[in-house]
Design a protein around this nucleic acid. Structure first.
Length: 205
DNA sequence: ACAAGGATTACCT
DNA sequence: GGTAATCCTTGTT
């Protein structure tokens, strides 16, 4: 697998959010097992955007948004859910793309499902019912065992416990653009992108 | 120290 | 479709 190069993260953040659709989120677990998912839903957060965590200035928990691009920004939401972002824009410019949903191959889905919910919980037959595993930023982070300790991880390095790699291109006619979910400020900006044909999108809109 | 609110999810009808 | 649960981060006393 080829990691996405640093340049990828230097394109405008909105373009990066769109371009991230179809790319791979790769997780290398401590025991050597590897899981990969295709990104199917993203949101952009930029400088001057009131919904961006960086809007009110730098704090201990959002500091990695100001760091170099191509790194992870992991934040806690509602005090209990971890959310994974890819930092974009040059160092000093706090922008990022939130990864909201991924699609996982059937083979990998089976072991990830049982790893997440236990062996006794039956794997659903329909794709649509796999959503509790991968649809939603908190869910996918949980499925891939990503927490605050991954904040700042180099996503351009294939050796990292989490990185992003070249996947497949998603044609424009399979991409839907909507407003972002779960925010009150900047709620009118159409900065969410998702793959229409994917059953793993968190919400239709 | 304390209160408020949040880039969500799970569980109910 | 609607609502409660959950608890960390931040800004204010």
């Amino acid at each position: 697998m080829t990691p996405l190069p640093l340049d990828f993260y230097l394109q405008p953040t909105l373009a990066a959010a769109r371009a991230l659709l179809g790319q791979l989120l790769v997780r290398r677990f401590a025991d050597g097992a590897v899981a990969a998912g295709r990104i199917v839903e993203t949101e952009a957060y930029t400088v001057g955007d009131p919904a961006c965590h960086a809007f009110r200035g730098r704090t201990r928990s959002n500091a990695s948004m100001w760091g170099p691009p191509g790194r992870a920004y992991v934040h806690i939401n509602y005090g209990l859910h971890y959310c994974l972002n890819a930092v974009t824009a040059p160092e000093g410019v706090p922008e990022a793309v939130l990864i909201r949903a991924i699609a996982v191959s059937p083979e990998e889905t089976a072991w990830l499902w049982h790893r997440r919910f236990g062996e006794e919980v039956a794997l659903p037959a329909k794709d649509r019912d796999i959503r509790p595993l991968v649809a939603g930023p908190g869910r996918l982070a949980r499925a891939f065992a990503i927490d605050k300790t991954f904040d700042g991880t180099d996503l351009t390095n294939a050796e990292s416990p989490v990185h992003l790699a070249v996947g497949v291109d998603v044609p424009d006619d399979d991409v839907t653009t909507t407003t972002r979910i779960g925010i009150t400020k900047g709620a009118d900006l159409p900065w969410r992108f998702y793959v229409r044909s994917s059953p793993f999108v968190s919400r239709r809109g």
